[in-house]
């Protein structure tokens, strides 16, 4: 049985879009991903066995679109270079130890409202990363690609990958603390 487009879109578009917004950098990109998901679902309807629910099937298509987006971004040249400075002493007795004023504070993210706000702040902070670094970071964190694949796509060496991940985590963490506490 062929589903009605209106029904599918009304039932699942918000659910898919909400997920896409949390994983993708902008409203427009999230909307495109949702549209592509529906189009791709309708063109491959014959592949849908009905074993899993429609929702699960659509989510799996959307997840692939998200990874595809970051794969493309990872391949791009590194245009906006990060101006982020490492939060460690550059010299002296405490060389390479945390600068006190930028060192991690304790976080308290347990109840629902806090988690919700935390989510929003995290989204904001991801925007601060250079596009290529964000793509590398997301591909690795979402565990959809092996390190080798990420390196090959982004045309970087493994050591470079670990440095990007390290810097991204330091930067996101610090940004969250500034915005949220």
């Amino acid at each position: 049985m062929v589903p009605k487009p209106e029904e599918w879109v009304n039932n699942y578009a918000d659910y898919l879009y909400n997920y896409a917004r949390y994983k993708l950098p902008s409203k427009e990109i999230a909307e495109d991903a949702v549209q592509e998901t529906f189009l791709s679902a309708f063109t491959s309807l014959k592949n849908f066995k009905g074993g899993s629910s429609e929702k699960t099937w659509l989510v799996s298509i959307l997840k692939r679109r998200i990874v595809d987006f970051y794969r493309k971004e990872a391949r791009k040249a590194d245009r906006n270079v990060s101006s982020f400075k490492l939060p460690f002493y550059e010299s002296g007795n405490f060389e390479n130890h945390w600068l006190e004023q930028r060192a991690p504070k304790t976080w308290d993210v347990d109840d629902k409202i806090q988690l919700d706000e935390f989510h929003q702040v995290l989204q904001f902070c991801l925007q601060l990363l250079p596009d290529k670094h964000r793509a590398v970071f997301m591909l690795k964190v979402l565990e959809e690609c092996s390190s080798e694949e990420v390196c090959a796509r982004a045309n970087i060496k493994p050591n470079n990958l670990w440095t990007i991940m390290h810097r991204a985590r330091l930067q996101i963490r610090e940004c969250i603390e500034k915005k949220w506490m």
């Binding site: 659910y15 909400n18 997920y19 949702v34 989510v59 629902k112 988690l115």
Partner: peptide
């Protein structure tokens, strides 16, 4: 996606 809609109050709508 399910955890997202259960655990978070704020949800984006298209």
């Amino acid at each position: 996606p399910d955890d997202l809609s259960h655990k978070c109050i704020h949800s984006h709508k298209i």
